[in-house]
């Protein structure tokens, strides 16, 4: 089933300036009891966002109206830990289209790509520039161009060329799912099975 195609993203960003953000922080296990993919955004970063009385914690960035946008920026080793795809669902359901970090955990990266959420890996140095730019002006904007594989800090024009394999890039640009590809090769898979028997 076709997904939404990934277009150019031009937006301000939300900084979660923390390293090793694990998927238990992105969406705690007690919220994984749903049997659909919807509604996880309201519990994104639940225990950093709300206290034990379900009151918003004022100094967490998602509760700060100064910050908004389609881009989530976070410290290195983002998405480590559990394989729960609910983490990617929570981030997209909240409204983010791009996650930027200087390092992503493998399973999270796959899960993001399978949900049309673009993981953009930049250098530690460039990540620091992004955080500084947001600190200087919380409404500062960025441009994410998947076609040219560039992430640009609009205010300074500084740009980073990020990597993505060409197959995944095509999938994102065209809204293709891996599963469509696999379903089209079922005969080949059956032949493979016979060849091993």
């Amino acid at each position: 089933m076709a997904r939404e195609k990934f277009h150019l993203v031009h937006s301000s960003a939300v900084p979660v300036h923390i390293e090793n953000v694990d998927t238990d922080q992105i969406i705690p296990a007690r919220f994984l009891k749903a049997t659909t993919r919807d509604g996880f955004g309201e519990n994104l970063f639940r225990d950093w966002r709300y206290d034990s009385n379900n009151q918003p914690i004022a100094d967490f960035v998602l509760n700060n109206p100064r910050y908004s946008g389609d881009i989530l920026v976070s410290g290195k080793n983002f998405g480590c830990g559990s394989s729960r795809e609910h983490a990617a669902w929570a981030i997209t359901d909240y409204g983010f289209k791009v996650v930027v970090s200087s390092f992503f955990a493998d399973i999270f990266k796959n899960n993001a790509l399978n949900n049309g959420l673009l993981p953009v890996q930049v250098s530690d140095e460039f990540l620091a520039h992004i955080f500084s730019a947001i600190e200087a002006d919380h409404q500062t904007t960025f441009t994410v161009n998947l076609e040219t594989q560039t992430f640009t800090i609009d205010a300074t024009g500084a740009s980073f060329n990020f990597e993505i394999n060409s197959y995944k890039k095509e999938c994102m640009l065209n809204g293709y799912d891996d599963i469509d590809y696999l379903l089209n090769m079922k005969d080949k898979i059956a032949k493979f099975e016979q060849s091993r028997a």
């Binding site: 729960r84 795809e85 399978n114 590809y181 696999l182 379903l183 898979i189």
Partner: peptide, 18 residues
Amino acid sequence: GIGTSEVEMVLATQCLMQ
């Protein structure tokens, strides 16, 4: 370990893209 979209791929085709 894999994500749920990948669980679906394996259920549907016994294969994964990796």
